[in-house]
């Protein structure tokens, strides 16, 4: 059976699917934030899904997508695209999303599971009890986006140093930094 239908069958009854998008064969499911761990358990343990491998976990900042686009002049002729986009943009106001890439080793199927995170409530349940592999990626998401993971065993910065003031992968963080103090100061 089609993966989309199977996922719907599995998650649908409990109203766990917010939306589903397919892009070039990659299926992505958006699920409510508060039940993400349950969804993962379901996806892992349901026999005909069996997504038993957490391939990756990362965050995306949709700040620029939320902005009204300057497209009117340029992209109007692109009818097909502009029609599609609002659909995707419907639930956009939540600024961040955390994406989980799942993999079923038996059937070699991949599934993207998304969770939207609002700026007012930047906390997601941790996935470490389900997959240990979520450990460092969650730390990295915390480091880069400032999204906290409730119940994470060791939630501290991973790549940046501890007292780094910003979260660099946010879209409002400029490429050249915000003029932070240089970490190494040599006095001559």
């Amino acid at each position: 059976m089609d993966l989309k239908k199977r996922v719907e069958q599995c998650l649908g009854p409990d109203n766990l699917v917010v939306s589903m998008i397919e892009c070039q064969g990659d299926l992505s499911v958006e699920v409510p934030k508060r039940s993400v761990v349950d969804v993962m358990r379901l996806l892992r343990d349901t026999p005909d899904l069996g997504f038993n491998f957490l391939s990756d976990l990362f965050g995306v900042d949709n700040l620029d997508l939320n902005k009204p686009k300057k497209k009117p002049t340029k992209k109007t002729e692109e009818g097909a695209e502009t029609e599609e986009e609002p659909e995707e943009k419907g639930p956009f106001p939540p600024r961040y999303e955390v994406v989980y890439l799942l993999l079923c080793l038996e059937r070699n199927e991949r599934l993207q599971v998304k969770v939207r995170v609002e700026e007012s409530d930047m906390e997601v349940d941790t996935l470490t009890p389900v997959w240990k592999a979520a450990n460092w990626p969650e730390r990295e998401v915390f480091d880069m986006f400032g999204i906290r993971f409730k119940g994470h065993p060791n939630l501290k910065r991973l790549l940046m140093w501890d007292d780094f003031p910003a979260h660099p992968l946010r879209k409002d963080y400029p490429l050249e930094g915000q003029g932070e103090e240089r970490h190494l100061i040599y006095d001559d």
Partner: peptide
């Protein structure tokens, strides 16, 4: 076009994917 994909291959170290 607007969208998001994940594609991976078997690099010498393992699954190297780009989203």
């Amino acid at each position: 076009p607007a969208g998001e994909v994940y594609s991976a291959l078997e690099s010498p170290n393992g699954e190297l994917g780009f989203f």
